[in-house]
Amino acid sequence: MTEVPEHLLKKAAEARAKREAAAGAAAPADDTPASAAAPVDEPEEDVVETDEQAEAALQVLTDQLGDAILDSHIAPGRGLWIRVAATDWRRAATAAKEALHCQFFDWLSVIDWMPSPYGRELDAEQDERETSDPEPMEWGYTGGETRFQMICRVHSVTRHIGVMIKADLADDSPRIDTLIPVYAGANWHEREAIEMFGIVVDDHPDVRNIYLPGGFEGHPLRKDYPLLARRMKPWPGIVDVELMPGEAS
């Protein structure tokens, strides 16, 4: 880490003092130990601004979809995630496109939440487990219940908000509606999702392989698809055999 130049440190201290004086005048200052110990404070204005925008977008979508939104998550500065049921998939995309003016279709894919049966193939402490029980499945933002989740991102260029829409796909027969009537660009993304994960997209006009050669068996991006080369030979990047300069063994 490089040292922060002195003149910048002085500027940060002056700004902090000014802000604390203003806060002290408006309300009694709370004496949290963190505020005294933190060397450089992050400006709070930026975070609040993006929150408001994302929350406004979430409000617009909630007005449109109501109970269809099962869960939502806002990452300040990064975007808005919402999760809907698979039956409301096209409704949610239509709401994003029309109510939020999300005209730009970014991408569409599938998340496989099953922990890899081959392990993480890294030499990390957390990977040395005593038992060989299968790890519990964990979901990310906005949770989930099934192994496969469809996810798509749409973006509004005019309102500068990006929305990620997720939907759970049923475990026994993962099917979902196509987004092509809403976003024509979803065509090739759905073809990739079909061949790589083995899900079914209803009413897709052109179900054929887009990346994989014809006659390819299996669905490669599923977690339980074996990489045969790795099974034969472990990944050589696991352990640094050579000591760093200056290190004793």
Binding site: L212, P220, Y225, A229
Partner: peptide
């Protein structure tokens, strides 16, 4: 020899 993609499902090594 397949290079950095020696472990891929779709690369001729």
């Amino acid at each position: 020899c397949g290079g950095p993609y020696w472990d891929s499902y779709s690369v001729t090594k």
